[in-house]
């Protein structure tokens, strides 16, 4: 029996030692994660490279018939008109904000407990709550960008988004039961050293999707770039003011 015990110990010992060695390595990665802060634009590839990669790779949206009908209904009432979420200053919502955002740049500001993603278009902001900063998503109202809880796995930020609203006015229609998983990481830099950020995304929707939408989106960093604010709603208010003043016979003093 002692021999048996000894053999067990010697068999386990290497795993224990390697485990002890690994713990600090994992902790280091988690406590000192990569910094994704910066201004980013859709990946264009190396300068002068022939035939750049597509905006994102893969990703086929297979809607169930009822969802497809819902999408067609939306198209039928908006096609050929000026009506659209963007024209009403409404952001795309997930996953449209992350996958497209109208071709505008995005900025990431990173704190240990939270990562802010600011899409220039429509000033759309996502807050990715990291670790204990995240609360129970069920305690919050559904939004177009949902509620995002995140954690680090080594050098990768894993983001789980729930509490989404049903959206037919999106390039990626989904029900309010959709969930989105993103995995952010630094990909291979361009030849001139420009950093490349990538995110593998999977949208699962038991009600509207025949199968999950799986794709990868890449961005490249913009150096010395000035991300702008996106004032959009003021003109609507100014038009309202103008009507009020006209009806009152008063001169509107505001430009």
């Amino acid at each position: 029996m002692p021999i048996h015990l000894f053999s067990i110990r010697t068999g386990i010992l290497p795993f224990i030692i390697s485990g002890l060695l690994l713990v600090p390595a994992i902790s280091t990665a988690a406590s000192n994660p990569p910094d994704f802060s910066g201004a980013w634009t859709t990946y264009r590839g190396n300068p002068g490279a022939a035939g750049g990669p597509s905006r994102f790779m893969g990703g086929e949206l297979n809607l169930v018939p009822a969802a497809e009908q819902a999408r067609q209904d939306f198209i039928s009432v908006t096609e050929g008109t000026n009506h659209g979420a963007g024209n009403s200053c409404v952001g795309g919502g997930m996953p449209g904000s992350m996958l497209g955002s109208g071709g505008y740049p995005m900025e990431i500001l990173q704190r240990p407990e939270q990562l802010f993603v600011i899409y220039e278009a429509h000033n759309e902001i996502r807050r990715l709550y990291i670790d204990d900063e995240a609360q129970n998503p069920d305690d919050f109202f559904a939004e177009r960008n949902g509620y995002s809880s995140a954690h680090w796995e080594g050098d990768r930020l894993i983001v789980e988004t729930t509490r989404l609203k049903t959206q037919v006015d999106s390039r990626y229609p989904h029900s309010n039961q959709a969930t989105i998983r993103e995995e952010y990481y630094f990909d291979e830099s361009l030849t001139d050293g420009t950093r490349v950020l990538a995110a593998d995304m999977t949208m699962t929707d038991p009600l509207w999707l025949e199968e999950p939408l799986v794709t990868t989106k890449r961005w490249q960093e913009l150096s010395d770039y000035h991300v702008l604010t996106y004032e959009c709603t003021e003109p609507v208010w100014l038009d309202e003011m103008e009507v009020l003043y006209e009806e009152a016979g008063l001169e509107m003093i505001q430009e």
Partner: peptide
């Protein structure tokens, strides 16, 4: 032009 299309239909 694709950016224009992103906000609403540009079919007109």
């Amino acid at each position: 032009s694709t950016i224009a299309i992103a906000h609403h239909s540009a079919a007109q």
